[in-house]
Write a protein that binds this DNA or RNA. Structure first.
Lengths: 167, 167
DNA sequence: GTCTTTTAGTTGGACGTCCAACTATTTTAC
DNA sequence: GTAAAATAGTTGGACGTCCAACTAAAAGAC
C-alpha cells in the first residue's frame, strides 16, 4: 500500500507560484476554483463508494430522489434536466440505465406528445430509500467538515451559484 | 432563448425535505456535498469555455502548468498523477492528446526503464502562457466570488481535503 | 543471488458530461 | 390559418474519470 498523496498542498503551492509570477491579483480566484475541482473529486468518490454496492451512481441517485420527492412519482425528462442542471442527453443516459434496471419506467406524456414522463417503480423507491439511509449514515452525517464549515461552504457556494445563474 | 434554471434553489429545497423526513442530522452534510457538486460543474464550464478556443481542456492545462513550473520542464508520468491526484490512466490519456498536439514529448527515463518522462515543448510553453493569461483575465480575477468568499472557500476546502487525505 | 512484491505505464471497457445534428411536436407571429 | 421559431428527446461522437487486467522493470526478502 503506497501513499500517493503529495506531502504538501498543491493548491497552496500554486498560490505561491501565482504570486511569484506577478499574478497575485488572480491567485485567490485560481485557488478557489482549483480547490473546488479537487474537493469535488473527493466528495464524489466518497459518495460513489457508498452507492456502488447498490448498483447506481450519484447521477442516477439524484434522478431517483427527484422522483421520490415529486408526489406523483413522475416527472417529464425536461424537468429532471432543468432541476439537475444537466443536458437532455445526460437525462436520456441516466433514465436509460435506470429503466434497464427496472427502477423507473418511461410513459407518454398525456397532453404533450413531444414529452416523456419518467415514473419511479416500487423497486426504484426501495432502492432510493436504502441508498439514502446509507448515504446519511456513512457520508452526509460525517462529511469531513465541521457543522460550521459545512454551513459556511453552503453559504459561499449559494452566492457563487446564484451569481452564475444556477437558480 | 429559454431560461433553463429553476426559479428556486434546489439545494435549499433538498435541505428542507431532508428535515421533513427526519434526516435533519445529515441535512447539513448533504447540502454541503451537493453544493460542491453543483458548483464544480459551474466552475468547470467557466474554465473550459475559456480554454476551448485554445484546443485544450482543464485537465490538459493542469498537466502543462505542472511542467511549466518544474524547472527542467520534465516530469515522470507518475509524479504528474500524484500531484493531480488522478489515476495513471488519466495521465496516459492527457499526455497522449498533448503529445498529438505537439505540446509535450515522451522521453525515456534515464535511470528507471519502467518510467517515462514528459517534457513540455516550446509551443506547449507558449500555449500554457497564453492560456494562463486568458484564465487570469477572464476567470480567476473575477471568479464569481468576493475576495472574502474566495478566501473562506479555500480555507474550508483545505480542511476538507486534508481530512480526506488529499495531501 | 534468487524469488516475491511493488511500481510504472498501457489497453480496453464502463460511465457521466457535453455538443452537434436530427425528428417530431407545439407554440408564436403575422 | 399557415409559416417560422421554439421545445422535447434521441443518437453519435468527443473527452475525462475510474477500474481490471496486463507487461516490464525495479526493490525487498531470505
Amino acid at each position: 500500500m503506497t501513499d500517493t498523496s503529495p506531502s504538501f498542498d498543491p493548491i497552496a503551492e500554486a498560490t505561491r507560484l501565482w504570486g511569484e509570477h506577478g499574478w497575485a491579483e488572480s491567485a485567490g480566484g485560481m485557488a478557489a476554483l482549483t480547490s473546488l475541482m479537487r474537493a469535488h473529486q473527493l466528495a464524489l468518490s466518497l459518495v460513489e463508494s457508498v452507492l456502488k454496492p447498490l448498483g447506481i451512481t450519484f447521477a442516477r441517485y439524484e434522478v431517483l430522489m427527484l422522483l421520490v420527492f415529486s408526489q406523483r412519482g413522475t416527472l417529464p425528462m425536461s424537468v429532471i434536466g432543468s432541476r439537475l442542471q444537466v443536458h437532455a442527453t445526460s437525462v436520456t443516459n441516466a433514465v436509460d440505465r435506470l429503466e434497464r434496471a427496472d427502477l423507473v419506467r418511461r410513459l407518454p406524456h398525456p397532453s404533450d406528445r413531444r414529452a416523456t414522463l419518467v415514473e419511479i417503480t416500487d423497486s426504484g423507491r426501495r432502492l432510493a430509500d436504502d441508498a439514502t439511509d446509507r448515504l446519511n449514515a456513512e457520508v452526509f452525517s460525517q462529511p469531513g467538515l465541521s457543522p460550521r464549515d459545512a454551513r459556511g461552504l453552503v453559504e459561499i457556494l449559494t452566492r457563487f451559484r446564484q451569481d452564475a445563474g444556477d437558480f
